[in-house]
Nucleic acid binder design. Structure first.
Lengths: 212, 212
DNA sequence: TTGCCATGTGGCAGTTCGTGCCATATATTC
DNA sequence: GAATATATGGCACGAACTGCCACATGGCAA
């Protein structure tokens, strides 16, 4: 059998356990909220011990933000598929739209993503943790724009510009997401619309509205 | 006595206790690091009970980030002094430079600020909490650009643009701060230089460097 | 001064998150 | 089927908080 399953029984079990924990956790987050849901309850629901829970996830935040991480990976993958000579913001804009729409033709991926967005937006304790992940993601985005240059050493200017593009982009997405969470819409299309407004106005920001 | 002291004895004691906690905490953060410094040790150093510590600060992060909050307030004050017809990013850029330089002629304020920046940058646990404060600050910045308009109701487009300006600005500052923390410089002037690069390139981002 | 009231403080018990350690159970390999 | 590797569970423990109650201290009026 050439196309043997690469996953051993052990790995399959681990994968299922991990997914089970995620599912149970988010189900509980939906009923109660994040803060009042204890790790003990999640572990019990997933039929593992609390100790084992912490072997799969370093902390409670991590399981809550797992979907966000997934979307980050999707976007990073989409970014790497963009032509190498594209300006950073253009590439990032296209990448996130790819990750949100094209990469899930039925829109299920985006729906699955937005379903977990509200609980995150409501739990203020999660906002900080989410920002941590976003910073890490921004650094990886930035790397895409500097690596490949001749010298491997630090290039302050280039690094600054690459980081700036990445984090300005992430700021735009976050503004869109936060506005979407604050609105009473549950339609992912509204989120995309918000994101388009923000991303488009990012590059023409210098001409934007004046103060009140 | 018309110019009587507005502060009662009680308020003076509270202020001193609060400042004492902050000072002791940051001194300890400097010796050990943030994570290994216990609230118990801080409370003991400030000669208050742990219970009282938590009456002054909701959590350990809050005392660590107190200097950051101060600088945020300074910047917000500086922003409000800018002419009302200035474009958002221009006003924000001027405001933060004012807060960092002009508002403390001797540069002591900025030095005092940067002294606390390194410990924050090193403690990853603090990064998330810092982001929380920054988000709150961004919202207040954004309010400066929408309030005063005729209708008090929500104006999605305006809000999006105002928020975007605020958070893109904050992203630029953060990139500058992070780069400064990552470098081995302890000179506040280098931080200002970084910030200038980031803020200036933010408005011309569309013409910036291409991918590797 | 004396007394009353508001408020700041300390101590203690208890909950939750998170970790180190060790014994046990389950998978993999030979 | 034995030897080995790895996953799991249980327990004890530390640290961050919180609620509750008793006490002390400052502010104020008679």
């Amino acid at each position: 059998m050439p196309e043997q399953q690469a996953e051993s029984l052990r790995e399959r079990k681990k994968r299922r356990t991990r997914q089970s924990i995620i599912d149970v956790a988010h189900a509980l987050f939906h009923v109660n909220d994040y803060d009042t849901t204890t790790v003990e309850a999640i572990a019990a629901g997933a039929e593992v011990s609390v100790r084992t829970f912490f072997r799969y996830f370093a902390n409670k935040e991590e399981v809550a933000l797992a979907p966000l991480d997934e979307m980050g990976e999707l976007t990073l993958t989409a970014l790497r598929r963009r032509p190498a000579d594209e300006p950073p913001l253009t590439a990032l804009r296209a990448a996130v739209l790819d990750a949100w729409t094209i990469m899930s033709p039925d829109g299920e991926s985006l729906r699955h993503y937005t379903d977990h967005l509200l609980p995150i937006g409501k739990a203020s304790a999660l906002a900080g943790a989410a920002q941590n992940r976003i910073v890490a993601l921004g650094d990886r985005f930035a790397l895409e724009f500097v690596e490949g240059d001749d010298a491997g050493g630090p290039q302050p200017r280039t690094d600054l510009h690459a980081s700036l593009a990445a984090f300005a982009f992430l700021a735009a997405v976050q503004v869109a997401v936060r506005a979407w969470c604050a609105s009473d819409s549950t339609d992912p299309a509204d989120l995309v619309a918000n994101a388009l407004i923000c991303l488009d106005s990012l590059v023409v920001e210098r001409n934007s509205a004046h103060r009140a």
